[in-house]
Design a protein around this nucleic acid. Sequence first.
DNA 1: CCTCTATTTAGACGCCTGTCTAATTGTCTC
DNA 2: GAGACAATTAGACAGGCGTCTAAATAGAGG
Lengths: 94, 94
Amino acid sequence: MNLIFKALADPTRREILRLLGRSEMTAGELAQHFDMTKPSMSHHFSVLKDADLIRSRREGQQIWYSLNTTVLQDVFTWAWDLIADARRKEVQTP
Amino acid sequence: MNLIFKALADPTRREILRLLGRSEMTAGELAQHFDMTKPSMSHHFSVLKDADLIRSRREGQQIWYSLNTTVLQDVFTWAWDLIADARRKEVQTP
DNA sequence: CCTCTATTTAGACGCCTGTCTAATTGTCTC
DNA sequence: GAGACAATTAGACAGGCGTCTAAATAGAGG
């Protein structure tokens, strides 16, 4: 869980996830959307991969990245549980 | 949104949120749950407050902290939208 | 095998962050 | 007002993080 939230803490990486939510993309296509060198982008990819937020597969010279929604659901659930806890407490003492 | 995710990137702060989900607590009570000095805890409180993830009110010498679920819902929604995007794409190309 | 393209790895650098100790602020009680 | 208690602010410091340039790897195609 820590790797996931660490990965989400950077705005560039969150934007990468948003783009990948729309469609699978190659490293190069993704890089075009940002004012940053390719090595920097590659670093962000690796952080997201380590957190298992994205998956990659090579196709010829290019590498295709895609979103792994399973891990995103963990984030979703984490936030939900916290809110649910707080709500439960409110109901007990109205 | 950036302050929120930055705040969530630290495990100590996520644990603080979990505790506050169960019940409102004073700074001192919270600090007891962690192996850390009170100034360090105070720093974490301030990061969470800046992100508006928690609210505080003074009562005598003590300061009570509570969860602000509104902002947590933003996180919830953010994750949801991303997952929804990915799902929509899957359905279009089955 | 050489070269071109796509991408990553290595290493360096400055800034941001989490932690600490010491000092300060705010509040209650005598 | 003095002392005690709760909590924060100030300042210092090590380690982590995001970015860059330069070099390396991987594959495609002559």
